[in-house]
């Protein structure tokens, strides 16, 4: 591995350790962590059992060390509501979230790049203005409101699509558009800016001057060079979608990790919340690490830049 890759992996590992530390602090900041780990109707004996089972009667430093060791072994404790290991619970839900995030990413890429390209090519036209107005509205509409709006239009009024639950492709359409819509808006604004910059370059003028067709110039020369900043944002978006999934899954009753986390908070099932935060961060860090390593490979200039930072 190159020095860049090693540095980048080391950064991710320290960040992960930081996340585990934050979760540990959260557990203790409320006073007695045992109260967070039991249901409201727990008896004094229950609390005592929890304290001993989790070693909460030991010094903080010992608890911290044990907590890290437990998480490193993949032991995230038991859900109080469902009585199964948290890892098992999360494993059963993470697939649906990935499915939703991938579909949303596809929506963001297709809609965002298409709108942005048309707007850039027809710069200053009414199409440009309309596309950018839609994009601005898209970034200003909270996902839960866009979700309900689409439910009202396509579910209630038109009756075209199912509005909740997990099932075939038709169940995926609305949630993916809601989660991907916000990022599509961002990507379209970025595509437009990035493409306009590239279209002003000398090599584009050269391409035109030597008689290349407009389509060849646009797809082969312009879009490829405009792609890097777009890819960066898409990589970051994919990680952030895990956060956005919390809301979207709740609206559409999509059985993913986000909905699991919300229901765990509402049901005071702290081990599940804790597990979701740790796994969520691990996925987020892994995605960002992969994206960075791929860029370092695609564009060697970035390696130096990252080292300087």
């Amino acid at each position: 591995m190159s020095e860049y890759a090693i540095r980048r992996v080391a950064f991710s590992l320290t960040a992960m350790l930081g996340v585990i530390t934050i979760v540990f602090v959260l557990l203790h900041v409320s006073g007695d962590p045992a109260t967070l780990l039991v249901t409201q109707d727990a008896t004094r004996q229950d609390m005592e059992r929890i304290r001993q089972a989790y070693g909460l009667d030991r010094p903080l430093a010992v608890q911290y060390g044990r907590f890290i060791a437990r998480v490193a072994r993949g032991d995230l404790g038991y859900s109080y509501r469902q009585g199964v290991p948290v890892t098992e619970l999360i494993a059963g839900h993470i697939g649906a979230t990935f499915e939703l995030a991938l579909a949303s990413l596809a929506v963001a890429i297709v809609l965002g790049v298409a709108f942005g390209t048309v707007a850039a090519v027809r710069r200053g036209s009414s199409i440009d203005a309309a596309a950018m107005a839609v994009a601005l509205l898209g970034t200003s509409m909270p996902s839960f409101w866009l979700g309900l709006l689409l439910i009202i239009v396509f579910g209630v009024k038109l009756g075209w699509l199912p509005v909740s639950g997990y099932g075939g492709l038709d169940h995926l359409i609305l949630p993916a558009f809601v989660l991907g819509g916000f990022y599509a808006a961002q990507v379209s604004r970025l595509t437009r800016t990035s493409l306009l910059e590239v279209l002003a370059q000398d090599y584009i003028r050269t391409g035109r001057a030597k008689g290349l067709r407009g389509r060849v110039v646009l797809f082969k020369h312009a879009l490829r060079n405009a792609a890097l900043p777009i890819l960066t944002v898409l990589g970051l978006s994919f990680g952030q979608m895990l956060g956005g999934a919390i809301v979207v899954e709740s609206i559409f009753a999509w059985p993913g990790m986000g909905r699991l986390a919300v229901q765990a908070v509402l049901g005071r099932d702290f081990p599940v919340v804790q597990g979701a935060a740790i796994i969520g961060a691990a996925v987020f860090l892994t995605v960002n690490l992969t994206v960075d390593l791929v860029y370092g490979w695609v564009d060697p200039r970035l390696r130096g830049a990252a080292q300087g930072a």
Binding site: T14, A15, G243, F270, A281
Partner: peptide, 19 residues
């Protein structure tokens, strides 16, 4: 770094669980 490694809304939900 650690805080920016958790999707913001997920972090907020976890803090709500405590506070």
């Amino acid at each position: 770094d650690a805080q920016l490694s958790v999707p913001t809304l997920l972090l907020a939900v976890a803090v709500v669980a405590v506070l």
